[in-house]
Design a protein around this nucleic acid. Structure first.
Lengths: 239, 239
DNA sequence: GCGATCTTTCGACGGCCGTCGAAGCGTGTC
DNA sequence: GACACGCTTCGACGGCCGTCGAAAGATCGC
């Protein structure tokens, strides 16, 4: 009775059909891995409940987990999962009516924002692309299917450029943390730089007035200085 | 705690989370409206159960219904709904392992098939586009949001062309049925011609050897003759 | 090693939801 | 107008699932 190309969507949909799980998945939409406890708090449930939900999401291949000490960081399993959530969002009623102010904020967040402690949004993706295409950064471990495993190194040329703006690579290496990797930026569908290098570079750029912090929680605003410095130093032109 | 652009996806997902409802929605994926009873049979449940499910899908704005005599025809509410189902399908396990023969069949169905009694698939969409761009067919009632309400008329030029291949427009008009409209072809995301005209034209093309019926239930195969006739008569070139 | 912290497992409770037959309602047919 | 047919509504049954506190497992810092 069922066509040969049919697939069984009910089990996957069931995973999205719970408010708590949906809330967790939405929280993971920006690509940043979150610890189980954070997800519990975000969703407003006990740790026990959150754990049970995460086990189901894991079993259903919607999320992946990385153990790091006593924390367990969860992330969406892939772009297809994000696409599903976005597709359903499109036909779901908005929780709050989108005010003018809110949509302006949303647009600003899309332009530039922090992702944990590094630059994300359109600006983050553009900078990352520029670093690679100008050979300031090179791929060490190309793991396209698993962003958590990707790794990058600065080239000699890159090290000179970065130190010229005040980023001390030797010091960045001393951080007990992965040197450089990428996260997938779900609003952009493109990667941006993370790790110790991403954080240090972002901190330096803010310190040096390339970006100022916006009113919304993670918002960043590109300054005029930032726009021209990004172009001069990294050949990165923002739209 | 929730971002302003968050929407509440759980209720919509819950509608897809039941095997019976999912089966009904999948059956509606090709855009052809189906009666409640047919959907009940397809899903393998009683009429009572089907009715309850359809009421929920209706309430959730995933389907729309048209009353026609003692039948009630249900169809997907829009392209966004189809997109959701397709997105979830992409991360859902296939019901049956896709054999070589099955995937060949699926590809053939995408090329050309019948949708109820008229031509659909890539060929159907291409033919419809050609009819409009060559001014053989014109829009009478442009209802882009509701395919069921759209209406078309043949132009004088169109009537000459169609009669030249043996389609008698006067006779088509006598059918107690909508003259010409379109369905959205979900695999193509483009419309194709339906109604009495779509059926008559398709019947004539098959009769005249433009298409032969394939082995799968709704499959059609374009013949060499069909390929050249489509180009000559309608300026319709298939990929 | 010993507490502190993060996370998972277990067991119990409560509620929601899919299922069906029977009955009711509207529509087409003879 | 009586019957057949398609569909929906009603009521009852059964099962699955989300929730939590308590306790166990795992890891870090001292």
């Amino acid at each position: 009775m069922r066509a040969p190309y049919d697939s069984d969507i009910a089990p996957v949909a069931a995973l999205l059909a719970d408010r708590t799980r949906a809330s967790m998945l939405t929280a993971l939409l920006d690509g940043r891995p979150l610890a189980a406890g954070e997800l519990a708090r975000t969703a407003g449930v006990s740790a026990a409940t959150a754990s049970s939900h995460l086990a189901k999401l894991l079993d259903g291949d919607l999320v992946a987990v990385v153990r790091q000490g006593r924390h367990r960081y969860y992330r969406l399993k892939g772009a297809e999962v994000a696409a599903v959530i976005e597709a359903i969002s499109r036909i779901s009623p908005n929780v709050e009516v989108r005010s003018l102010r809110q949509s302006r904020q949303a647009r600003a967040l899309q332009e530039a924002r922090t992702c944990y402690d590094h630059l994300a949004g359109r600006a983050g993706a553009a900078l990352f692309e520029a670093l690679l295409s100008r050979d300031l950064l090179e791929t060490v471990d190309p793991a396209f299917d698993d962003p958590a495993a990707s790794a990058y190194e600065v080239t000699d040329k890159g090290e000179r450029q970065l130190s010229s703006i005040g980023v001390d690579i030797a010091e960045v290496r001393r951080a007990r943390r992965r040197f450089a990797g990428h996260c997938l930026d779900w609003t952009e569908r493109r990667p941006h730089l993370n790790g110790a290098l991403g954080a240090a570079l972002t901190a330096r750029m803010i310190e040096d007035g390339w970006f100022t912090r916006g009113s919304a929680r993670r918002a960043l605003l590109v300054t005029e200085r930032g726009r021209s410095r990004l172009a001069d130093v990294f050949g990165c032109v923002l739209g």
